[in-house]
């Protein structure tokens, strides 16, 4: 962010820097915004894969997107009740 001497002396910031700040905010939101249908599909696909290894009840699953600084984190909680020991089966 550019804080010029003019701004320190109480002048209004330039409209170009306001534009840039506003754009940065809104574009970060645009990029982060995941379609609900995509989230539901991802949820099903993840559950399908995890079900090969773990036992869990479908309604205990929680999925969330979190922002940390400039990056976004997909947090998925799949509390499981049992681990299928795949080594034993082979």
């Amino acid at each position: 962010m550019n804080i010029s001497i003019k701004q320190l002396f109480g002048r209004k910031p330039k409209s170009s820097s306001i534009a840039k700040q506003r754009l940065k905010l809104v574009i970060t939101q645009d990029r982060f915004d995941v379609d609900d249908r995509v989230m539901t599909r991802l949820h099903h696909e993840l559950a399908e894969v995890l079900a090969k290894y773990f036992e869990f009840s479908a309604n205990s699953v929680k999925m969330d997107l979190k922002q940390e600084g400039n990056s976004y984190i997909l947090v998925a909680d799949f509390p499981y009740t049992k681990f299928h020991d795949t080594n034993m089966r082979q």
Binding site: K14, S15, S16, A19, I27
Partner: peptide, 16 residues
């Protein structure tokens, strides 16, 4: 317009 602060310059646009 860039010179008088009313338009974003190329560095601003590329940064975004």
């Amino acid at each position: 317009l860039v010179g008088n602060g009313s338009m974003m310059d190329q560095a601003d646009v590329l940064d975004i």
